[in-house]
Design a protein around this nucleic acid. Structure first.
Lengths: 181, 181
DNA sequence: ACCTGAACACCGTTCAAGT
DNA sequence: ACCTGAACACCGTTCAAGT
């Protein structure tokens, strides 16, 4: 007979909440269980292990990032919008990028985000491997900002730093597109 | 009476070796002690806690990164050399960047590296806050590459990706220097 | 001064047992 | 089907006790 106190949705929601407030160290199976008014072992009926919870939580937060319409404005504006939206997400969920260092969190939501950014680069004029490299350059910089801005070095307004670097990258990519030395 | 089987140097050396081969999860105080022919508790006489071991290990590996002579060649070549050298270090010690997500590892060796990169940006013509932002852009991209290239997405030859993005950044910074739209 | 052994509180995970 | 309680093996850290 199902008691159904727990569901996958509730578990993921509680996990994201715990991660946001307590950090990755704060997410323990016992903490998670007690926050759900249950026990650690009960969680294991719904979920394989802690790794899967992290994967589900990652999928949830990647889903928060909006994917702008492809043919709305220029590729620079589209890339800037995606980068700032992703950056805002990493600020809301500061555990995600650090966790990526330890767990393979290449979830479908991440893949959709990457594909969308790649499509923008292709629409800008990049083809084949160059399009992937352009996409990866932007992505690496934004995710790197979540590391460098968070725990390393003197804290500053990361929004300014992000858009300074982003503009440099976009200018450099534009130079390559128009064949400027 | 000192038995002196253990020293800080030996502990750090063993810790780096353990981190390089087993990853951050492989570094436990008991493992570290037994690798040194001793015990976990013995390590605690030489070191405050595990965090301090990570700080010492980080200092050791940042010290491996060479700081090129400032007035040897152009600023682009100097930045490229530093970026590739740092990138090579993150490949030798893949635990460092992930660990930066969880522990404040702003060690003196890191500070020296940042200062040197900043000096190159200033020599290139950037002043004040812009110099710091230019430095941080390069640093963020290289450290981000250690995250994105390691665990996320399809693995490719990261050396090519690094220098593609680096060139875009340098081109963009150059545009800003010469006031090009 | 330097190290050992045992202990404490925690953790992820499993599993028989209950309903 | 869904959950509980207890257990296992591990962990970081402490601390009296040894030399």
């Amino acid at each position: 007979m199902p008691r159904n106190n727990l569901s996958r949705e509730q578990i993921v929601q509680a996990a994201v909440g715990l991660l946001d407030t307590e950090g990755v160290d704060g997410l323990s199976m016992r903490q998670l269980g007690s926050r759900l008014g249950s026990t650690a072992a009960a969680v294991y009926w719904h979920v394989k292990d802690k790794e899967e919870i992290l994967v589900l939580a990652a999928e949830a937060v990647w889903g928060e990032v909006q994917l702008p319409d492809l043919c709305e404005s220029g590729w620079r504006a589209a890339v800037t919008t995606m980068a700032n939206d992703l950056h805002a997400m990493t600020l809301r969920h500061p555990w995600l990028v650090p966790a990526m260092g330890f767990h393979p969190l290449y979830v479908p939501g991440r893949a959709r985000h990457d594909d969308h950014l790649l499509a923008i680069c292709q629409a800008a004029g990049f083809t084949g491997r160059e399009a992937e490299q352009a996409m990866k350059t932007v992505l690496t910089f934004v995710l790197g900002s979540a590391l460098v801005g968070n725990k390393g070095g003197p804290a500053e307004s990361t929004g300014d730093d992000l858009n300074f670097g982003l503009r440099a990258i976009l200018d450099g990519l534009h130079d390559r597109l128009v064949g400027r030395p």
